[in-house]
Write a protein that binds this DNA or RNA. Structure first.
Length: 142
DNA sequence: ATTCTGACA
DNA sequence: TGTCAGAA
């Protein structure tokens, strides 16, 4: 199948599909026309990629881990032993990231408190409004 | 009609 | 990641 069909069947944009290939996550063969030719099994590969991406793994890590993962239809199951340590390391990396963000938030909270203290009537402060920005919250990619 | 690559008011 | 251009 060509990229258009894979895109429709997986719900993943053609743009992302080409990007995954650049990252070494997919290796479709080419038709003489230069068009990418995917196989049925690529459908599962793409699903695995999406799952791993949603788990917060980088494409580099996914490239290493992908061939060691098999989809039993419901969940991803590790097929290699060294995979466990690799994933555990990623988990710690993500935990570290969370800690950094938690610290950053705490510092901002203090600064905001100090600002409010010195500016009792700042409810019409354009700078603060801009800083607050459009508080939008996006759902986790799936 | 589809896909490809490269680039970004 | 979207999206548009210019070519095949």
């Amino acid at each position: 199948m060509r990229i258009g069909e894979l895109s429709r069947r997986t719900g993943v944009s053609e743009r992302s599909l080409r990007y995954y290939e650049q990252q070494g996550l997919l290796g479709p063969r080419r038709r003489p026309s230069g068009y990418r030719e995917y196989v049925e099994s690529d459908l599962d590969v793409v699903r695995r990629i999406r799952t791993l991406l949603a788990a917060g793994l980088s494409t580099a890590i996914i490239a290493e881990v992908l061939p060691c993962m098999v989809d039993d239809g419901e969940r991803l199951v590790p097929a290699c032993p060294e995979l466990a340590v690799e994933l555990d390391r990623e988990r710690d990396r993500i935990t570290g990231h969370i800690d950094e963000l938690t610290d950053a938030r705490a510092m901002l909270t203090e600064i905001i408190a100090a600002t409010a203290a010195s500016h009792p009537a700042a409810d019409d402060c354009e700078v603060l409004d801009a800083a607050a920005g459009p508080r939008r919250r996006q759902p986790v990619a799936r």
